[in-house]
Design a protein around this nucleic acid. Structure first.
Lengths: 176, 176
DNA sequence: CTATGGCTTTGAGCGCGCGCGAACGCAAAC
DNA sequence: GTTTGCGTTCGCGCGCGCTCAAAGCCATAG
């Protein structure tokens, strides 16, 4: 299932800590290597979500999808592109409600570009803060791992290079 | 409330993109500047969670808290330290179930250190992956902001330095 | 030619993780 | 004496998606 979904592919492309160039970003929206009209299963596999979630997004008004003569959904390039965008925003934590608002702005035409831009700027700040929070939590976790005597990874200072208390239970000591 | 909660303080200490030293991390667990036995409101304010959540954690078995003669909770240093750890893990996405397991290991004694270490290592990997995902989403968002003509911030390439399509609606074009 | 399995459709309802709200009582403090 | 802060319990709510049921069409298999 989704063994080569977009995010996985992107992470592999980027590597564990490689640079993030506009080139790489652009590649994330490059859909040249996928069939043009797609079935729900193909899109689900591409985005690493379930067909159920795709129907859910459609019911939520985030995207309109054509049908073939059997009533089956047919996703064209525009729909797929939009869904790529939507799933990326979802993955980065934007709530459904905001996505619905954003899409309503898109459907309302070019006049809404400034407001869309505002939403994106605000969301960018949210992502940035979240990354800072996680970075801090990561450092704390690695510090704790070090006090437990474990390795924190290949490219990190060895545990014995970290001075300070080595009481690993310092912050989870029983309180009873 | 919680205008000087731990995470906010930590983020200010670290700055928007400063280095993360063990020094800083250690400061995060430095509780010397807070009163020793704390009330539920004080702890809630410190951790930027609600008293409700603190009672919830206690009921969940994550921490035991003493009472004064009125039945009010009294958080000693050990309890606060543990709660600092717990909220940090929660913030970085560890589910309650895992925290309950972890705490049960702590309470079970030193023999469980290896398993605790395993949990921390696994959680570290989860945080790392999440940071990579968010970094990618951040880059995509900034790319989109650039195509909309907005600034991505002071320390990022100007929009006109990014070549490629400037069709901002490329991935949220209406599909109808 | 039927059959069997696999994919799709719709709709309604369920479930999870994580707390929050409301209602009510008690003790202290202004 | 009324406001404030804490206690408990029960139940609710939210965001997000999944499950389940009933049914239709396709393909391959016998």
């Amino acid at each position: 299932m989704a063994t080569d979904d977009l995010m996985t592919r992107a992470l592999e492309t980027v590597g564990d800590d490689g640079p993030l160039s506009a080139e790489v970003i652009h590649r994330l929206t490059d859909l040249a290597d996928v069939p043009e009209p797609m079935t729900i299963a193909e899109v689900a596999d591409l985005l690493d979500i379930t067909p159920h979630t795709l129907r859910y997004y459609e019911r939520a008004g985030l995207v309109e999808v054509a049908r073939d003569r059997y009533g089956h959904r047919v996703y064209d390039a525009d729909a797929v592109r939009r869904l790529v965008f939507l799933t990326r925003m979802r993955l980065s934590g934007m709530p459904m409600r905001d996505l619905q608002h954003y899409i309503s702005l898109v459907d309302a035409g070019q006049d809404t570009v400034p407001e869309r831009l505002d939403m994106l700027l605000e969301h960018r700040d949210i992502i940035r803060r979240r990354i800072r929070e996680l970075t801090l939590s990561l450092a704390a976790t690695e510090y704790k791992i070090a006090t437990y005597g474990g390795s924190t990874g290949p490219d990190v200072a060895a545990p014995d290079q970290i001075q300070g208390p080595v009481d690993a239970d310092a912050d989870d000591r029983a309180a009873r």
